[in-house]
Computed example of a mutant assay.
Amino acid sequence: MSIRRPSVLVGALALAVALTGCGSSSDGDKGETGSDSAKSGSKTRVFEADNGKITIPAAPQRIVATGYAVPALIEADAPLVGISSWKRGEPLMSDEDLATYKKLTKVAGELATETNYEAIAAAEPDLIVIGVPAPVLADVDVKRLETIAPVVAIGPTVPSAWRDLSRKQADAAGALGEFDTRKAAYEAKAAELAAKYKDVLPQLKAGHVGAYGEVAKGNFQREFSGSWGSNIIEDLGAVYYGKVKEPGPGSKSVSEYPSIEELPESLGEADVITYSVQADGSVPEAVKYVLDSKLWANLPAVKAKKTFAIRYTEAASYGQAMKTLDAIDEALAPLLKQ
Rank of each mutant, 00 (worst) to 15 (best):
G226N: 06
W162H: 13
F224N: 14
K196S: 03
I232V: 06
R182Q: 10
R144F: 01
K183P: 05
A172T: 02
K189H: 09
A216E: 13
L137C: 08
R163K: 00
N219I: 04
D141I: 06
G207S: 15
G218Q: 08
P135N: 14
A173I: 01
E146D: 03
D180Y: 04
S230W: 02
I232E: 00
D171E: 01
A170S: 01
L204F: 07
D199M: 07
V140L: 04
G226K: 07
D180G: 05
P135L: 12
N219C: 06
A172K: 02
D164W: 01
A190S: 07
V136E: 03
I154R: 10
S230C: 13
V142T: 09
S160H: 10
G207V: 15
T181L: 14
T157F: 10
L193E: 01
D164N: 07
L193Y: 07
A195T: 00
L176T: 14
L165H: 09
A188T: 14
R163C: 00
D171W: 04
L145T: 08
K217D: 11
D141Y: 00
K183G: 05
A188W: 09
G226H: 07
K217F: 13
E146S: 06
A194H: 03
E178I: 05
V140D: 01
P135T: 10
N219Q: 08
A216K: 11
K196H: 02
Q203N: 13
Q203P: 07
E192W: 06
G155Y: 09
K143N: 15
G210V: 11
G229R: 10
S225I: 15
E192R: 05
W162R: 08
L137R: 12
E234C: 07
K198C: 05
A194D: 05
I233C: 02
E234S: 08
K168L: 12
V142Q: 08
D139L: 14
D171P: 00
V136Y: 11
A184L: 13
A211R: 10
A211P: 11
I232S: 03
L193C: 04
V151R: 14
E146C: 04
Y186T: 02
A138Q: 13
V215Q: 09
A173W: 00
K198S: 05
P156Y: 13
Y212R: 09
V152T: 12
I154Y: 02
A195W: 00
S166G: 02
V142P: 02
D180A: 10
A184R: 15
V140F: 01
D139C: 08
V200K: 02
A138Y: 07
A206K: 03
D141W: 00
